[in-house]
Design a protein around this nucleic acid. Structure first.
Length: 230
DNA sequence: GCGACAG
DNA sequence: ATCTTGTCGC
């Protein structure tokens, strides 16, 4: 497999990365409802790292939104394009994730990211960034509340509460399993927060984490492992 | 200035 | 994210 090159114009400093986010943020589309849950394709993307070897592996897994069966998969391997800095995660993952998405044999439909969209210090997290670059509808489903606050949602699956940046609702804490820690959903691009939550529930019939990111997580780890032997 | 901080 | 075995519980 070929190694994904880091773009020539990729930011090298935090200041440059902030400037890119500030410039692209205006292109996020928030007035579209997004695709209906349970129909068409839903694609999960995720990334695994080996900072020692400076290697990153990304995976994109397309599921049938109705059956949650796997329709297609693709992976890509690249060099780590940015250090981990809270708020700048996108610059670490996007080049390789884009390559994996482009390697898919079919349209991805809605893309589900492992992280945040609008719930971000500058309202432009990974999911929004990926959405603007691809034009695809995207949402972010994170495992941790990052710097945001929230009241614990009801104990039943489906319960939710506002994820807050001060008094602004930037996402939602959504319970996907009875009595289990909620996930944190935010809008990426071309999807409404209500629809993002509906999709998340449709993707969690058995586990806390969406089936899309579970599949993508397993696949990118496997791709990273194969990078050692071959 | 010191901590906290998606993955 | 990643380092890492067994173990408690449904």
């Amino acid at each position: 497999m070929t190694t994904v090159p880091i773009p020539e114009d990729w930011p090298a400093t935090e200041e440059q990365a902030h400037a890119v986010q500030d410039a692209l943020r205006a292109r996020v589309i928030l007035d579209e409802p997004g695709p209906p849950p349970g129909q068409g394709h839903v694609t999960g993307v995720d990334v695994a790292y080996d900072d020692e070897r400076d290697v990153v592996a990304a995976a994109a897994v397309v599921l049938d939104a109705s059956s949650l069966g796997v329709v297609a998969e693709a992976t890509a391997v690249g060099r780590v394009s940015f250090p981990y800095v809270p708020g700048l995660l996108a610059f670490r993952e996007i080049p390789t994730v884009l390559a994996a998405l482009e390697a898919l044999p079919c349209p991805p439909g809605l893309v589900v990211c492992d992280g945040y969209g609008l719930a971000h210090p500058r309202r432009f997290g990974l999911a929004s960034h990926l959405g603007v670059l691809t034009g695809l509808p995207t949402i972010g489903v994170a495992k941790n509340p990052f710097t945001f606050s929230y009241d614990d949602p009801g104990t039943a699956r489906g319960s939710s509460s506002a994820l807050l940046a001060g008094s602004e609702e930037v996402g939602r804490a959504l319970r996907t399993r009875d009595g289990v820690k909620p996930v944190f959903v935010s809008v990426g691009h071309r999807v409404t927060l209500d629809q993002a939550c509906a999709h998340t529930l449709a993707l969690t019939p058995a586990y806390r984490i969406p089936e899309t990111t579970r599949r993508a997580d397993a696949l990118c780890r496997e791709a990273l492992r194969k990078t050692y032997s071959a």
